[in-house]
């Protein structure tokens, strides 16, 4: 099991992700996007950061690099993929996951801990949690507002493909608890396959005990679960 952490110019959460996965005993290698996906890759993590300086739209350029074609092929063969923050934006821009993450409602970069309600506890990325459980993860993004068409959103809800929604400490999904104006308070979704997941909050920043809360462990464990 070797997870490829794909670095683009401007990625900056790649080493955090590597350290978090190592802590969980999950093999991972940092892979430069121009070098292509290594043979024997058994998972793909698209890390956070600001690939291509967020030019055009966050994630738009990285989503159209040749390595993403290899990622698409790997994913179609059942390799699990997790996109975090900029990696989530790349996942949506590449069409691996639905919708788009765009400019926060308040037009500000937001860096703060948020509460998330687990919407579906049956995916590889959320099996460590109970449905309805409230966890706390940090966010750090300027373009994290989830937008999807009404039909897409309805499909996601009907098919149980929403992983997390922003909520308050008690698990109430309210406008006040929505840090960026995301449609339906959505913070993370899965693609056509539950093995493909993206989320704006940072599980890798909530995994090492030395850094405080470790609510993100369950998400990263998805690589071992898939």
């Amino acid at each position: 099991m070797t997870v490829a952490i794909v670095r683009f110019g401007g990625s900056n959460c790649d080493r955090d992700a590597a350290r978090a996965l190592a802590h969980l005993g999950i093999d991972a290698d940092l892979v430069w996007y121009e070098d292509g996906l290594p043979e024997g890759t058994t998972g793909v993590l698209l890390p956070g950061g600001f690939s291509y300086g967020d030019y055009l739209r966050a994630g738009a350029m990285a989503a159209r690099t040749p390595i993403m074609e290899e990622v698409r092929e790997a994913v179609s063969e059942g390799v699990p993929l997790l996109g975090v923050c900029n990696g989530a934006q790349i996942g949506c821009e590449s069409g691996l996951t639905p919708g788009i993450f765009t400019v926060n409602e308040g037009a500000r970069f937001q860096c703060e801990p948020v509460f998330l309600r687990v919407e579906n506890g049956e995916t590889p990325w959320t099996r460590a949690y109970e449905e309805g459980e409230v966890i706390e993860l940090p966010i750090a993004h300027g373009e994290g507002r989830f937008e999807a068409t009404e039909e897409e959103l309805a499909t996601l809800e009907r098919e149980g493909r929403i992983l997390f929604r922003y909520c308050d400490r008690e698990g109430r999904v309210t406008d006040e608890a929505n840090p960026n104006g995301s449609a339906g308070n959505v913070a993370g979704v899965v693609g056509d396959s539950e093995r493909v997941a993206v989320l704006m909050p940072h599980p890798e920043r909530a995994t090492l005990p030395d850094l405080g809360r470790t609510d993100g462990v369950g998400v990263l464990r998805g690589f071992a679960e898939s």
Partner: peptide
């Protein structure tokens, strides 16, 4: 279609 616009928004 392929890059400049995102059809969702």
């Amino acid at each position: 279609e392929r890059l400049l616009a995102n059809p969702t928004i």
